[in-house]
Design a protein around this nucleic acid. Sequence first.
RNA 1: GGAGGGGUUCCCGAGUGGCUAAAGGGAGCAGACUGUAAAUCUGCCGGCGAAGCCUUCGGUGGUUCGAAUCCACCCCCCUCCA
Length: 371
Amino acid sequence: METQCSSFRFDVLAESDNARRGRFYTSRGTVDTPAFMPVGTQGTVKAMTPENLKNTGAQIILSNTYHLHLRPGEDLIETIGGLHKFMAWDGPILTDSGGYQVFSLAKLRKITDDGIEFQSHIDGSTRCLTPEKAVQIQEKLGSDIMMVLDECVPYPCSEEQAFNAVKRTSFWAKRCVNARHGENALFGIVQGGVFRNLREMSAVQISELGFDGIAVGGLSVGESHDTMMEVLEYTLPLLPSDRPHYLMGVGTPLDIVEAVARGIDMFDCVLPTRNARNGQLFTWKGKITLKQAKYKLEKGPPDESCTCYTCRNFSLAYLRHLFMSGEILSSVLATMHNLHFYLELMLKMRHSVENQYFDKLRSSIKEMYND
RNA sequence: GGAGGGGUUCCCGAGUGGCUAAAGGGAGCAGACUGUAAAUCUGCCGGCGAAGCCUUCGGUGGUUCGAAUCCACCCCCCUCCA
């Protein structure tokens, strides 16, 4: 079954063991992999202007179907000219389907085979999201890469629950394939919790549907790093090697490097942006918690070796002051830095795979971020 | 000089006899954050510690089994009237 109808294309350019360096092409630009997608749930990567984002090195960002559907609504965005124009980001956008909200907003929803019935977290109104609706919304938004609606189960969960989610996710995946009309790329999602048999079943079923890319979902929901890696080890070999592999919602620098080592090409995660707002910086020397008293008089930047705007211009003492004072600029500068760090990490990984020193980079990240 | 109000643990501020090492804020200190209901949340916040003990509510002295809380005097501060 071949359903690919978009102009989306993916090439693997170099490999180092299981790690891949590649590139995919969309009508709005090319993206080098391994890639990190900053998260812009509500049509904005918090605290960043699109110009800021470009300067951090971001080539693609992620946005969210569920949230934009509730507010301001896909029809409004379509009327204004689509999500790219609406938010003034002209690069590629991948939109998550809302499947994760099934997990994160678990108290507000009910799942049936037809779809998800949920209560809006904004006004309490009852809404329904079906696989077809998820695709329709994403097409109206003008998404470059759409995600199928999936069911993400919590951790821990029973094998039966995970099995049902796999069945439903496959069923919904087919309906998403049938519902697409336009040129937008569409990625399938593998589920299965931490059960090898279920992951394998899901990987095979999803891979058969001819998606432009395959995502591994349902991870980083509470399981350990090692467990996550085990799941990747037995799942990735079953995915088509000529399509990008996207690990959803991951992760820490260590998670990301270790996932690349196992064959993942794409990531998204709120950690660099959320933790920035909460006063935590990722650096090449490890994490920095801005509020710690030891930085009160620190004249140097967060990271001497970092070339981001924040590190080139500001002392830790000042950044700490901004955070302690609750100043808006704290979020801006910290987010700029963290995204720069994440995107530089991806750049280094691409370079290291091309030049066969990936293992060296991998072990240095392991040293800094082994907690 | 007269009339009233008040001094509480770093700060603000509750507390009018035992349930009070003392509400609640703030500040401070520390931790968490993984397809964002997050510029959010959690913990600690007199001292030593296992229970428990010791010190603390302007000062001193009383009343009481028991006092931040009641009484006496003293020291400060604020408002109003002369």
